[in-house]
Design a protein around this nucleic acid. Structure first.
Lengths: 214, 214
DNA sequence: TGATGTGAATAACTTCACAGCG
DNA sequence: CGCTGTGAAGTTATTCACATCA
């Protein structure tokens, strides 16, 4: 995929950091901090203030030189950039242990991200309410997802079902999938997949730690 | 931190990919594939064969030119590199929904990674068995972890406890932490932290998807 | 001949240094 | 004067091209 010359390419890592900034800013706002410097925002984030300012610079100038940033304004701007200024409905597929953890997770609600539909193929779960969400039959996915205009999904099914469900999601108009199954999705069209591979992360950690003490 | 001139620096991304290769190779071995090419290994992985060979090259030559790699041998080599040739005991702290999902996750067992201790501060959980692991009182962490010589931990506690528990883990000799709490850990000594931030991933996905359709 | 292994070229990302501006 | 914003420099990672060897 080529890039037209005028547009500045924005690192994916930058995008991920925007979320961290947003969370931090919310906390600062809760503490009634009305104006912040790049130093202050990044203080507990393991990110340099340089990096923060560089990240923002891809989207435009937001601060006042010599002063800093207005906390509430910057929050609004970041939300807009991330597309979280209006509520973002998401679907969850696979209500096993990990899926349940997701349903219960409160960390999204602050960010206009809400799970509005959950699916499973386990008859004993279908029709029940978990965390206020009714579990639907997987076979109804292709009806419900377009109806609710859902564009994002979290995939927490066993690896062997991941591809199949991925296809169903793609057919239903989903454009982005956060995939927790240790399986690679091969999907038609412009569907973006972010893989979170917990085993791979642990293995990497094992290596890095082992290397520390030579 | 400077690097002595002779050693080749190994990208962290390379390390994470080693785990993916290992999983794929196991699957191939299960399918009785005895010899594989770099093409075949990376086929469903969204990784180029170039990348695979480059990744391996940091650690030495493992294949036969014109032929490929012996599946079983390469598995052994990768395990050795990752430090997973002997069993790697890990501790889990925080047996909430996400922690429980981890305990139940079978994806590690193939990789010599095993959760051997779980901790929580919820009296109703302590002493009970979950997935064959006895839940211990958080206050016993600093006794049990050194006893079992545990070097890696998974942190699935609420954000407000993360720092505190991180300190306890560091004191107990843990050298690497896979942190799921949306909080930054500030730890003494040489403790490596890998953060998995599910909300940040979702936010990044929201951005990327929104950008697709201009 | 066929697939690996790797230096060199390219691309991507981060850090720096300082100009710009309130 | 202080902190932001950003081009440029530096670093890190990926892709390429081909020498290499069974």
């Amino acid at each position: 995929m080529t890039q037209s010359k005028g547009e500045p390419r924005i690192p994916t890592e930058t995008i991920k950091r925007l979320g961290l900034y947003l969370r931090r800013l919310r906390r600062l706002l809760t503490s009634s901090v009305e104006t912040v410097s790049s130093e202050e925002i990044t203080r507990y984030l393991d990110i340099s203030s340089h990096q923060f300012r560089k990240d923002l610079s891809y989207f435009g100038p937001f601060g006042r030189r010599g002063v800093g940033y207005k906390t509430d304004q910057l929050i609004v701007q970041l939300e807009k950039i991330l597309g979280l200024d209006s509520e973002c409905p998401i679907a969850l597929v696979g209500v096993g242990k990990l899926g349940s953890a997701f349903l219960a997770y409160t960390g999204f609600s602050n960010f206009n991200i809400r799970i509005v539909a959950a699916f499973d193929n386990d008859i004993t779960k279908i029709g029940k309410n978990w965390e206020g969400i009714r579990i639907e039959d997987l076979s109804r996915l292709e009806t419900i997802v377009p109806e609710l205009k859902i564009k994002l999904a979290v995939l927490t099914v066993p690896a062997e079902y991941a591809q199949e469900v991925g296809i169903q999601l793609a057919k239903s108009g989903v454009k982005g999938i956060l995939n927790f199954a240790p399986a690679n999705l091969n999907l038609p069209g412009e569907v973006l997949v972010i893989n979170v591979d917990m085993a791979a992360e642990l293995m990497a950690l094992a290596y890095l730690v082992q290397k520390l003490d030579r």
